[in-house]
Design a binder for these strands. Structure first.
Length: 155
DNA sequence: GCCAACGTTGGC
DNA sequence: GCCAACGTTGGC
């Protein structure tokens, strides 16, 4: 594994876009992020090949559903300029885009969902983890290598 | 569907 | 720059 490689967790509502959808399409532009901190992770810190935990949020069984990877350099989210899109941002100018994204590529589905409940039960072992912080709403967040490995071991 | 948490907006 | 109002996220 490349030195300095970062690990990530990205949330998606499975009714909108699930790990099965990602498997079907292979690679997906991660459109619609409208939070500056999440954007900055994609714009400034992600590298092609970084591993991504694909997390199902706002559903009956929230948890990590599979594995993906960063598949592109950052580029402007096209939906910000699309008047028809829910993600249209009239304040963003094409010559100075406000919202950036990366493509995410399917790697594999987990045999089963590693649930949020399980992660909470192992909060002590996982250590400081943005996903488990109270009230956390970030949809793109960093995961340490140790946390990443720990979560894989729970599958 | 409820609602706590939290980011953003905009009046001042 | 403060902060109340508002909208959204996401677990439950």
């Amino acid at each position: 594994m490349m030195a300095g490689m970062k690990h990530w967790l990205m949330k998606s509502e499975p009714e909108e876009f699930s790990i099965d959808d990602l498997e079907r399409v292979g690679t997906e532009p991660w459109t619609g992020v409208r939070n500056y901190q999440a954007r900055n992770f994609m714009l400034k810190e992600m590298r092609i090949g970084d591993p991504v935990l694909f997390y199902h949020s706002n559903c009956a069984q929230p948890g990590v559903a599979g594995l993906a990877e960063v598949a592109s350099e950052p580029y402007p989210d096209p939906t910000q300029f699309d008047r028809q899109s829910d993600y249209h941002d009239p304040g963003s100018k094409p010559e100075e885009p406000r919202w950036w994204l990366v493509d995410v590529r399917f790697v594999r589905r987990f045999r089963r969902v590693v649930t949020l409940e399980e992660l909470k039960a192992r909060a002590d072992a996982l250590g400081d983890f943005a996903l488990l912080r109270r009230g956390n709403r970030l949809s793109v967040l960093p995961v340490s290598k140790a946390q990443f490995r720990h979560i894989l071991s729970l599958e």
